[in-house]
Design a protein around this nucleic acid. Structure first.
Lengths: 138, 138
DNA sequence: CACTAAATGTAATGTTATTACATAATATAT
DNA sequence: ATATATTATGTAATAACATTACATTTAGTG
């Protein structure tokens, strides 16, 4: 949270109470959370909240890199660990939906180099890899 | 198409006219296509088609690996190139939605090894990487 | 042919995300 | 300090993506 505030300060971005609420809700989970699930939680704080309320707050947080969108799950997770760099992998368990973030220069560079050979410039944000976690394999 | 038929034969899977239609529609595009866009096209061949018609055909084709689901676009693309192995990368242009498939052992192995260190077993299907293609950067 | 399993038809509904426009709050310039 | 512009939020409706449930048809098997 502290870091988020500083980041907003630096960028001249307004971390309003609403946006802060959404971010804090997200921080309470250690897995990606769907927008409508987040909306349900937000409603207990702000009865007026509507889908667009959540999506707008998420867009703001995504732009800052405080939150990742996990395409494979249509869900969102607070970014952990690497506050300055979001270029690792995120491993997603197909079964339990848990995710692990992994910042690994080697993997990342390998991917980016291969992409570059085909003229692609890869953006920010981690690469999503679907798999099965240790727990769910047992 | 030839290859698809053989694959179905081998697996004892029934490539029915409907499934064939869907697959052929997909082959006409060189980019991922949404299910409802596909549905519109399918309707000109089969007026009775409904959303579930398309989704069922896609599920069948996905199981066989003839088609990939591109999570980042909520869309589907016919698999090109590596008919026996689907473990490369798919690069997706955020701007024009074009995709390029890239089978690269090195990248793939690097990703899988890193995942394995965290207890993750990665499944089939390519890893999606979002970026910007050469054309859209110009 | 009778039976079973697989595929498709049909309708409804669930889930995720966006658009459009109104209102309120905040920042900026005068 | 006040008017103006910009940014944020409220409110309603709808669009886009996907699944469930159940009926019917078609294809495979004894």
């Amino acid at each position: 949270m502290r870091q988020a505030e500083e980041l907003c300060e630096d960028q001249g971005a307004a971390l309003t109470p609403l946006r802060r609420d959404v971010y804090e809700l997200l921080l309470r989970h250690d897995r990606p959370v769907g927008a409508y699930e987040l909306l349900d939680e937000l409603k207990s704080l702000r009865p007026k909240a509507a889908p667009v309320t959540v999506y707008r707050a998420l867009d703001f947080l995504l732009d800052l890199g405080l939150v990742h969108r996990v395409n494979a799950l249509n869900a969102f997770s607070a970014c952990r660990g690497h506050e300055t760099d979001h270029r690792g992998l995120v491993l997603i368990c197909r079964s339990c939906k848990a995710t692990v973030e992994l910042e690994d220069r080697k993997v990342d560079n390998t991917i980016r180099r291969s992409a570059a050979e085909l003229g692609f410039e890869t953006g920010d944000g981690p690469v999503e890899v679907l798999g099965t976690c240790a727990g769910c394999r047992g």
